[in-house]
């Protein structure tokens, strides 16, 4: 669903629980990623061992984290509303604590993917996301070395396990970011194409569709459906399809045209095709294209006049003054 608002194309992209499905994330894929990061049982145990510690430093770490984000204009703008900030801090706390709660399964993955989707939706740049994560890791490293002063190697072990998990998370978040970004772009492109293809209403019940450029199957389909929708909306009875500007009229394009004409008839409209030179028409016929159902007129002007005749308009000469 796309709309044009103040010159900007806005698209609603819904990424719901089917995100896992749509991105093709499977148990297998998750296992591969863990394997590549060498994230294993000992790592899970390391993280589980600091679960309580993480609880205890969660709030001060979150506060320091957001102080950092708010001190930079680029990241600050995402949290200027205090209610948003409170909400986000709560979500962030839950997110960070989840890192040390074990069960890094598909549910965990779904959660991380959704977070990536949210970031993309609010337009958070990846550099900000990565920079923020780096800051968080530094805060945690400090806390860990404080907590394990007596055994610094242990602090390092745990930190390395955390880093592996964090990299798994970042991989997932960035994948989602790119996936939803591509989807948004795809939808925007579709919307722009739709909005920029003119079906013109020149008279009551009369539409003109001037086609310019290269017609591939996808564009042909899009133009046809748009034309049919315009017929319905405008209650058009006659359509003039002008193909003067079409780059290459081969048998494929001609077949799309024939289908379009047939489809307009199904909606109760008559189509007149203009801009099809007799040489090209001849060639198409020899190629086996059945143009029998297509009513053609040489040029656009002639086509419009014919259309007006069909609709019962009469063109009356005005001889009341100078031309």
């Amino acid at each position: 669903m796309a709309t044009l608002v103040n010159g900007q194309v806005r698209v609603e992209s819904q990424l719901d629980a089917t995100l896992l499905q749509a991105m093709g994330m499977t148990e297998e894929e998750l296992a591969h990623r863990k394997e590549f990061l060498q994230f294993d049982q000992p790592d899970e145990q390391n993280l589980a061992s600091i679960s309580d510690l993480a609880e205890s430093y969660a709030d001060p770490v979150i506060d320091a984290f957001y102080r950092h984000l708010l001190s930079h204009p680029e990241s600050r703008r995402f949290f200027e509303d205090s209610r948003v900030l409170e909400h986000v801090k709560r979500m962030q706390r839950r997110y960070f604590l989840r890192l040390t709660q074990g069960h890094y399964d598909m549910a965990y993955v779904q959660d991380r993917l959704n977070i990536g989707a949210v970031h993309e939706r609010i337009g958070l740049p990846i550099k900000t996301y990565l920079g923020a994560y780096a800051f968080y890791l530094r805060l945690v490293a400090q806390r860990l070395s404080e907590a394990f002063q007596a055994k610094p190697e242990r602090a390092m072990e745990i930190f390395l396990s955390l880093k592996k998990l964090v990299y798994l998370d970042m991989g997932l978040a960035i994948d989602t970011y790119m996936f939803s970004r591509e989807r948004t772009i795809g939808l925007q492109q579709e919307a722009i194409r739709e909005l920029s293809t003119p079906v013109l209403q020149v008279r009551d019940r009369l539409l003109i569709l001037p086609i310019i450029g290269v017609i591939d199957s996808s564009r042909a389909r899009q133009l046809t459906v748009q034309l049919l929708q315009a017929i319905r909306v405008n209650r058009a009875k006659v359509v003039v399809i002008d193909i003067t500007g079409v780059a290459a009229v081969d048998s494929r394009v001609a077949n799309h045209l024939v289908q379009t004409v047939e489809a307009t008839r199904l909606m109760g409209a008559t189509s007149i095709v203009t801009g099809l030179s007799s040489e090209v028409a001849q060639t198409l016929v020899t190629l086996g294209v059945d143009l029998g159902k297509v009513f053609t007129v040489g040029d656009l002007q002639g086509g419009i006049e014919e259309a007006e005749r069909l609709l019962g308009f009469r063109v009356v000469a005005d001889d009341s003054g100078p031309a």
Partner: peptide
């Protein structure tokens, strides 16, 4: 009467245009 645009399109693709 009332053939929807997408249905009209599918019909001509199917090859059955009434």
């Amino acid at each position: 009467v009332g053939i929807q645009p997408e249905v009209a399109f599918a019909m001509v693709q199917l090859g059955l245009a009434l």
